[in-house]
Amino acid sequence: MILTETSVEEIKEKAAKYPRRKSAILPALTVAYRQLGYVDEEIYREVSKVIGVPNVEIAEAATFYTMFPKKPRGKYLIQVCHNISCALLGADSLISYLEEKLGINKGETTEDNLFTLISVECLGSCSTAPMMQINHDFHENLTRDKVDKILAGLKAKA
């Protein structure tokens, strides 16, 4: 098993609340993603066994949603909103700035596997634009200064 005992327990606990087992698919995939940073076929099979839903139904759901990528990404996933409210306040230049600072293009991961940079659709921080999400955390009202500090902080922690 790739899923840890804690993850399996968490999935079971969540699944028990729903009137139907199939409803536990998204919660289960979320738990798996939190543990691993990706969800692939092997995980579908494990989830399938834990919640008692056919493997194909897990795969069917998982492949629809953007939050269950099949491949692992860097330790810190940087998602920059490129939608209209953020774009009006310089999201494109924010992406370029991050590309330059990290030495990678959008969609890539740094060599040390620390950062993956992607751009995404609206994250609901329109009145505090521009913004980026790093793993679960939102960083809003971004300036060059703030971005420098955030990245330096993460590098120091790593």
Partner: peptide, 21 residues
């Protein structure tokens, strides 16, 4: 219940499908 990153799930019938897995 948390979603998986899909704008369409804000449409009520898609939301229901999403809760159903």
């Amino acid at each position: 219940h948390t979603g998986g990153g899909a704008y369409i799930c804000g449409e009520e019938t898609a939301l229901l499908n999403s809760i159903e897995g």
